[in-house]
Structure formats: C-alpha cells, structure tokens
C-alpha cells in the first residue's frame, strides 16, 4: 500500500476534507516529507495501519469514538495525529510534546532539511491552510477574492444574477 495515499486517507478522516480537496492543495507531498523526516517510519506505519484497519472493519465509515480511542488517545500516535491536523489546517509544524520526544523522538540533526521545532512549512503551503476555507475566507495575503467581495454576505455560493 502506498504510504502517501494512506497519508491522504488519514488526513481526510482527521480534517473532514475530501481527499481530492487535500490533493487540490498541491502541498500534501510537502507535508508528507516533513512528517516522514520528523517521525520515525515504524510509528507512521503503525498510525496508518491502525487507521486502515479501522476503515476496513467499519467499511469506510469509522466512528469518531474509534479514531479517538485508538489514535488520538494513544500516547504514541495521538501527538502525531494532532500534528497532522495542524499541518493541514495551519501549514505549521509544531514541536512534538516533550515527553513524546523523549520516548519516540528522532534526535535533531543539523543536516536534515527539517527540525522538530515550530515552523511554517513553506510559502506555498501557508496559503493552502484549510483553516482559511473553513473560516469562509482566504489566506491573508493570497488567493485574492477580488474588489468589493467583502461587501457581500458571507458564504461560498455566487450571487444569483438577474437577467432576462
């Protein structure tokens, strides 16, 4: 099984966005890169396998409680899952909790592209944060919506135009 597509599947469950929307950001692979550089492979395998198993046993409709009990409440997997949510929503990597790092962390190495400290993944990633869509807005400083659009009532639907 392709781990990148596992990453999208888990991401969709954790964020409530569809896989095509996650792929539509164009920065999923960048996030995956960050994740795989900062969290060891066996933990990610366990995380993705756990979710895939839930998905299989629930035939595609995993109840929230299951995700909570097996992933979010799991001391090893929970912090990683929460970081994945924050990657998708905010495009920021947050340093993993102190106790997690002591137990499971990969020591920071200067030659690595990424370090386990707080950082914005990239310029492109920042403007793809899901939080802006969820807010009904757009990333501040990008994806300009056009002159005067702020006067219209909030909502995503184009305004009906009256013409004969």
């Amino acid at each position: 099984m392709n781990r990148l597509s596992d990453f999208y599947r888990l991401g969709a469950a954790l964020t409530d966005y569809e896989i095509v929307q996650l792929e539509g950001t164009g920065v999923g692979e960048e996030y995956y890169d960050v994740l795989t550089s900062l969290v060891s492979g066996n933990i990610l395998d366990e995380l993705f396998d756990d979710y895939n198993n839930l998905d299989k046993t629930c035939s595609g409709h995993v109840p929230d409680e299951q995700i909570r009990s097996s992933i979010l409440a799991n001391p090893k997997l929970g912090p990683v899952a929460r970081n994945i949510i924050k990657l998708w929503y905010l495009s920021i990597w947050y340093q993993l909790p102190e106790n997690w790092r002591q137990k499971y962390g990969i020591p920071n190495q200067t030659k690595n592209k990424y370090q386990d400290v707080q950082f914005i993944v990239s310029r492109n990633a920042y403007i793809q944060g899901l939080v802006w869509q969820a807010t009904g807005s757009h990333p501040m400083g990008a994806k300009q919506p056009g002159y005067g659009t702020w006067s219209a009532a909030p909502g995503n639907q184009p305004h009906p135009v009256n013409f004969q």
Binding site: K143, Q144, P145, G146, Y147, G148, T149, A152, P158, H159, V161
Partner: peptide, 14 residues
Amino acid sequence: ILEPAVGTMFKMKY
C-alpha cells in the same frame, strides 16, 4: 456587474 465578475474569475482560477 463587472465588479463581482472579476471575483468570479478569481474563483475560477482557484
């Protein structure tokens, strides 16, 4: 209406 039409063009792009 050209004003909001520009907004629609941006939406199409995204």
